[in-house]
Nucleic acid binder design. Sequence first.
DNA 1: CATGAAATGAGGGTAGCTCTCAAAATCTAC
DNA 2: GTAGATTTTGAGAGCTACCCTCATTTCATG
Lengths: 213, 213
Amino acid sequence: MNPMTAARSRFSPADRPQLGLRERKKIKTREAIRDATYALIKEQGYDATTIEQIADRAEVSPSTVFRYFPTKEDIVLTDEYDPLMLEELRARPAGEPWIDSLRHVIHMALDVLTEEDPETVRTRAHLAIQVPAVRSRMVESMSETGRMLREAIAERSGLAPDSLEARVYAMSLTGGLLEVYLYWAENGFQDDLRGLVDRALDVLEHGLPAANS
Amino acid sequence: MNPMTAARSRFSPADRPQLGLRERKKIKTREAIRDATYALIKEQGYDATTIEQIADRAEVSPSTVFRYFPTKEDIVLTDEYDPLMLEELRARPAGEPWIDSLRHVIHMALDVLTEEDPETVRTRAHLAIQVPAVRSRMVESMSETGRMLREAIAERSGLAPDSLEARVYAMSLTGGLLEVYLYWAENGFQDDLRGLVDRALDVLEHGLPAANS
DNA sequence: CATGAAATGAGGGTAGCTCTCAAAATCTAC
DNA sequence: GTAGATTTTGAGAGCTACCCTCATTTCATG
């Protein structure tokens, strides 16, 4: 019924017949809440949309909404691509320069995302620049991604994952990449996200083009 | 009365006799709210401390607390050092390598902060690693600092302040430096913050020590 | 089908935050 | 100093995100 459901069809219950009825219902409820939320936000904006309205449209109780998502922001944002990325990173040849591995993995992640649900990718970015709470949550979630990055960085560089150097490096990457996303949204999604990422990685690798000493 | 008031004495009303009674009272109220908040947090922790308690101890109404600080996190965090830093950055010699200028300014900011109120610097870092809402607000506030950094970066490099490159660079710096602060707190404030900053700037300038290609 | 486990709904409670409006404090002029 | 304009404050109602508990329903399994 909802166009977004189609876009997210990889995760729809129909594709997982091996699961019990309970699990399939849970997935359906999750999707119903997400779809209701995105629809309501599109109609009235984020702040005007209350949990109660979401619950009504998704035909569940407000308690259930909170059982599935810890906060309102999480309804919009939560997704779990981190393990995928980490796995992909580990699969890269050991001798490959770190930045190249990273570039490759991010390109792949972008492809998956945009193929799967380009609409949502934009809506999220849009919310991130409009609603402080959403942006905060996004930063927080990217920091978690950064923590996973540390693992990979540590493996490659021989540094301890908890070392200051690994942490600073991972976090500066994370911050830079988040900024790409915001930049893209603020400029009306005109640019090619992939191209922006490449430019950002160049900056992170070599510093500013015409800058400093 | 409160030891923190002494530490923040540069800003106390007594030092600004040229201001009218109204302005002096406002400053006093601000300090009363801050002091009450820090004291209560020390006693009971952040979450257990309510606005009402803060208002009671500061001898103002809850409404007044919100008039002075938009959110509870802001009571703990708000400070205005950005203009100072920007000014100091601009005062550096034009030929100086960018990273050196930055290093110099951050050192200076650290000196000012630790001389003025070392206790608070630690309490904040402590809260930042314990309370997600505070950390979020801190990130947000550092992003604002990052936006000022863009100005300075643009002036030095000739890039547009709104260019992707300037933005990514500023944000990755911001993220990296925030991580230093968190690292320092997580390791019990044992390390010399200044030394950590230097190590972080080295990473940001040259990449990881023994890493990649 | 019966028993146990899991998911749900209903409802009450807390606290952050907003808004309004009238009272009190401060400033300005005469 | 006193009157009047302006600013600051307090009181309190209202909204909503979020938490917790408990009874009811829904699914899984022998």
